[in-house]
């Protein structure tokens, strides 16, 4: 009985610790892609995948953050492919970019093939990776660096339609 109580106490303590670590980063799991699309269906959506361990991602993020702050005509949603247990480290990095208030997700499902397949069945896991989704439902994917001129061109087309 005493052991059971100790276990319970440890469990309650552990919940507090774990939740304090998670921060404001939502889990990205099976079906999350469709949920995000539905929530942002009325506006152009830039869904951007990145990782702490991906140098090109880290290089391009400040530019993407600045662009998103300067343009109010699309929604930016960020998904890190780092496991959600790494949220503390992810949040620290997001803070340096001023992206703490963005819609942030982290992988919470290790069946990564299925997560990728939902976004783009031809995506082999390259990072960074971006899905550009228009209100009409059309999806354009970009492997690697998201060039500002390409993003501008995509947004211009979206607005003229």
């Amino acid at each position: 009985m005493r052991n059971a109580f100790a276990l319970f106490a440890a469990y309650v303590l552990a919940i507090g610790m774990a939740c304090a670590e998670v921060g404001d980063i939502a889990p990205f799991t099976r079906g999350t892609f469709a949920q995000i699309r539905a929530e942002h269906a009325s506006r152009p959506l830039v869904l951007h995948f990145w990782s702490l361990t991906c140098p090109p991602c880290i290089t391009e993020m400040p530019r993407l953050a600045a662009f998103a702050r300067a343009h109010r005509d699309f929604d930016l949603v960020l998904v890190t492919t780092d496991p959600i247990e790494q949220s503390e480290r992810v949040a620290a990095r997001l803070k340096t970019w001023g992206l703490t208030d963005a819609a942030n997700f982290a992988y919470a499902d290790n069946f990564v093939e299925r997560l990728r397949f939902e976004v783009d069945r031809n995506w082999h896991g390259e990072l960074p990776f971006t899905a550009l989704i228009k209100p009409d439902g059309s999806v354009k994917t970009v492997e690697g660096e998201l060039k500002t001129e390409d993003l501008v061109a995509w947004l211009d087309k979206g607005l003229t339609q």
Binding site: I15, R72, D73, D75, I84
Partner: peptide
């Protein structure tokens, strides 16, 4: 534009995630 999203989904899912993580941690 940067703005938070999925507030409800986020809160409940984090709770579930915390539970799973905490169980592993405690055991």
């Amino acid at each position: 534009m940067i703005r938070p999203t999925c507030r409800f989904v986020r809160t409940t899912a984090i709770a579930a995630s915390c539970l799973a993580s905490s169980l592993a941690l405690a055991h």
